[in-house]
Amino acid sequence: MLSDSGSSAPPDAIPVTLTINGQERRLRVAPWTTLLDLLREELDLTGTKKGCDHGQCGACTVIVDGKRINSCLALAVQKDGASVTTIEGLSSGALHPVQAAFLEHDAFQCGYCTPGQIMSAVALIEEGRARSREEIREHMSGNICRCGAYANIVDAVEDVLKTKSSSFREAAE
């Protein structure tokens, strides 16, 4: 177990325990610290991005207790006891299939929305709700890509879904 004092944590900081990328961490966080700022500013996990800080872009998407959320709108203290997976925890060594598919399909350009897109796609695949390109599009619409890589993002997600499941509709549209 790691114990981080949190150098800039004020004296009224609250102790929380979070399992981040499989590692249990005891932290002290101010109540107004969002999960996103905790990751980026305190823990140097800058793979999770801040694009709008208001839940309007999805760049900050992480998986908390198995569900994708916007980490910018979650207060870290509220997540005491939770398990958090960020882009840094998705793979060790070889790329996760979704990461590999993004690379292969050129599903990004500037890369800034990419970790959020990938975390969202990983969760989408787990949710099991996307069975057509149309459904991928809708359920990936919480992640804005200003470079406009959407068509390639759908290709990448579809590719992974097809290898995982035969129920994906080939020509649903």
Binding site: T46, I87, E88, L95, Q99, A100, L103, T114, I118
Partner: peptide, 11 residues
């Protein structure tokens, strides 16, 4: 594929 791709997809 992009040379900077691995860095971008891993954060």
């Amino acid at each position: 594929s992009r040379q900077d791709g691995p860095a971008k997809v891993t954060g």
